[in-house]
Nucleic acid binder design. Structure first.
Lengths: 229, 229
DNA sequence: CTGTTTTATATAAAGATTTTATAAAGATTT
DNA sequence: AAATCTTTATAAAATCTTTATATAAAACAG
């Protein structure tokens, strides 16, 4: 259920992969790697990444051919990272469907900026994290909650509480934990707050507030956000 | 109506414009040019091109500022062509919405390939700079707003605020975010500004200002521009 | 196991506080 | 001078906090 961006590196140089791994992971991307064209293709098919960084100088197959094959079905951005700096290579790669071409050695800041640029537009609408549970929809990026497609009016505290539950579906969240996360560390003894707000939330999100289906009470412990099919 | 692709060059060097004119026209692009930021903006608004080649070193205004201003409404590709080769400039430009960055002097074949790459997909996605929501029409390129086909008179700040809302329909925008985007980072505590301007905006765009349908208050958090069918 | 006691939870409603809306006056810019 | 921005003041609305009481669950004694 991660909303992180996955990037696949296809490059035969170990050092380069290591460098990219460190760079990408420290920037919150999910890093996967392949050392050969064959492995790269297989990985791309099995777990289509959001972006591919492709080296043209692979041992088992010509980079331009790999690019062409990928482009037969892969529509997300592909950025070429290559030691080849000839105009011929660059033009060929771009015309074969590469979104960008960076010559090695490159500056990591520039690579990251070009990755962000390539990803822009791909993740405008589709990739916003919406948690769906039964007839409830929680849009974390828009900060909105819908029940049966209808927008609910929640106060800021009610929303924080619900979002916290939604992010921890199925888990029992203790009173202490909920109070600390939503109200702050100084409020861990204000259990009554929690009761009041849980009651208000239930009135808004539950179909039958007397028989709560979303927010279930775990007496003596806390509450649990139950998953619905 | 020609189906040729129109490219606008904004660059103060005469030789560069001449070189690009020859290169582009011999490749079947329609070439238009501007020597200053001001002229470039005017031309872009009057005849929105399919792609803009922008030089960062313009005499009358900082290139990064020009890019930002263009990106407020211009959604087609912008490729930066600049003598500046510092990582800082490249990263800044790409993060400000440039699609690509080419350092001068460049190889014309590579430029053409990067233009082709940037143009790819342009004609698939719709990029209408007019946002329509109910009886409200916001033309981002003309900076005009119509309510029931009638032109509204908005101040520049009111317009910036409304345009920001329109670009983020359905999302809750926090006070901080709005203040930072419209007034600048030094104003994030001036919530009262926001209240005053929201009230003014509502008086102009809402049918019933007492029951706001477009700009909805999210108490304690911010405001949301609601979608109307 | 059953009824009683104790503890925990649910909910409404009143009071307190915070946040928001709006007008209008003063300051600044065009 | 006109338009716009900034500040101040105040009323209204929304939200939070507290209190009171009802209900449900757990613990316990017999």
């Amino acid at each position: 259920m991660s909303n992180k961006v996955a990037i696949l590196i296809i490059d035969d140089e170990v050092q380069m992969r290591k460098l990219l791994q460190i760079t990408l992971e420290s920037n919150d991307y999910i890093f996967t790697e392949a050392a050969t064209a064959k492995d790269g293709m297989i990985m791309a098919v099995n777990h289509p990444p959001d972006l591919i960084l492709l080296d043209l100088g692979l041992p088992d197959e010509d980079g331009h051919t790999v690019l062409k094959k990928l482009r037969e079905w892969f529509t997300n951005p592909i950025i070429i990272v290559s030691v080849q700096s000839s105009e011929e290579d660059i033009v060929k790669a771009l015309d074969n469907g590469a979104n960008d071409y960076l010559v090695k050695p490159f500056r990591t800041g520039e690579l990251l900026a070009r990755i962000r640029s390539a990803l822009r537009g791909i993740f405008t609408e589709e990739n916003n994290p919406v948690i769906i549970n039964g007839d409830l929809q929680i849009d974390l990026s828009a900060r909105t909650v819908k029940k049966n497609e209808e927008l609910l009016k929640l106060t800021s505290t009610e929303y924080s509480l619900l979002a916290l539950f939604a992010k921890n579906e199925g888990k029992v969240l203790t009173h202490q934990y909920l109070l600390r996360e939503v109200w702050g560390p100084g409020y861990i003894n204000q259990s009554q707050y929690l009761r009041v707000f849980i009651a208000q939330l239930r009135k808004k999100i539950e179909t039958d507030a007397n028989r709560p289906a979303f927010i279930v009470t775990e007496s003596g412990v806390g509450y649990r956000f139950a998953a619905k099919e």
